[in-house]
């Protein structure tokens, strides 16, 4: 599914990722944990192709294709999805308009016919219902006036609609109370499938009690310093990240 080899990346000339190696197979859920400033968000942006994040070395292969050669929207159309730490507000653009445009762009890329308004509405209503989102929420402007929990659920709704084969969840738990966290996690879990892989980025073990990963990696100062099973998360929760050193040591 996804193969990251010796990935180095800089932001504003400063090297943040210093040789990442990671292989994710279809159906697997990997968690990346690590202290602040370890490069977790940088990794998610590099994988989704954000401007300003420059790859200086290494490769990323996604379903046999060179991911780094693609534009952001091409990656999305090929099946890479990023659930944002801070979903962005787009005033005046309704959720339905936004998602219909996005879904049809992705379908067009895949050579599928575009959905008409009726087909689309039927689909989004069904998916929204599964996430406990009402009609009002899907009609409102994208993330405008949404609570933190609603924004995250809205991102998961987008994921459910776009049906990516690889999803990156960037600190999906940040800013959520326990009820909202459960709702979001339920949504994510319902999207787990043997064909779909996920990369869950988080500070805390808390999220991983709800979205149980197959593998856990510790990212510290630009490198994956330790990998293990889901029990690694519990260990980190108890010990903290201190043993992985400080920026100066790396």
């Amino acid at each position: 599914m996804l193969e990251i080899r010796n990935l180095h990346a800089t932001v504003d000339g400063k090297e943040i990722l210093k040789g990442i190696n990671l292989t994710i197979n279809p159906g697997e859920v990997h968690a990346i944990m690590g202290p602040n400033g370890s490069g977790k968000s940088t990794l998610s942006y590099v994988l989704s192709g954000r401007d300003g994040y420059e790859v200086t070395e290494g490769s990323v292969t996604f379903q046999g294709k060179d991911l780094l050669a693609m534009e952001t929207e091409e990656r999305a159309a090929e099946g890479v999805f990023l659930a944002f730490q801070y979903p962005v507000e787009i005033p005046g653009v309704s959720n339905t308009t936004f998602l219909k445009t996005a879904l049809n762009a992705v379908r067009k890329h895949k050579g599928l016919p575009e959905l008409d308004a009726m087909q689309f509405l039927k689909l989004i209503r069904a998916k929204a219902k599964a996430l406990n989102m009402n009609d009002d929420m899907i009609k409102r402007a994208v993330n405008v006036g949404f609570s933190g929990g609603e924004k995250k659920r809205n991102d998961i709704l987008q994921m459910a609609m776009l049906e990516p084969s690889f999803a990156i969840l960037d600190e999906t738990d940040s800013g959520l109370d326990i009820d909202a966290l459960k709702l979001v996690a339920d949504g994510v879990n319902s999207l787990r499938s043997p064909e779909r892989s996920m990369l869950v980025i988080t500070h805390y073990q808390r999220l991983l009690s709800y979205i149980v990963p197959d593998h856990v990696h510790v990212l510290a100062y630009g490198k994956i310093v330790r990998s293990g099973g889901k029990e690694l998360a519990l260990e980190l929760e108890a010990k903290g990240y201190a043993e992985f050193g400080s920026p100066e040591a790396a």
Binding site: S48, G49, R50, D51, E71, T72, E73, R75, A76, A77, F81, L82, F84, P87, V88, E89, I90, F98, L99, T101, A102, L103, A105, V106, H109, Q158, L162
Partner: peptide, 10 residues
């Protein structure tokens, strides 16, 4: 905003 839209395929 631009990145958000592009990350959804636009």
């Amino acid at each position: 905003q631009l990145f958000y839209c592009r990350a959804r395929g636009l």
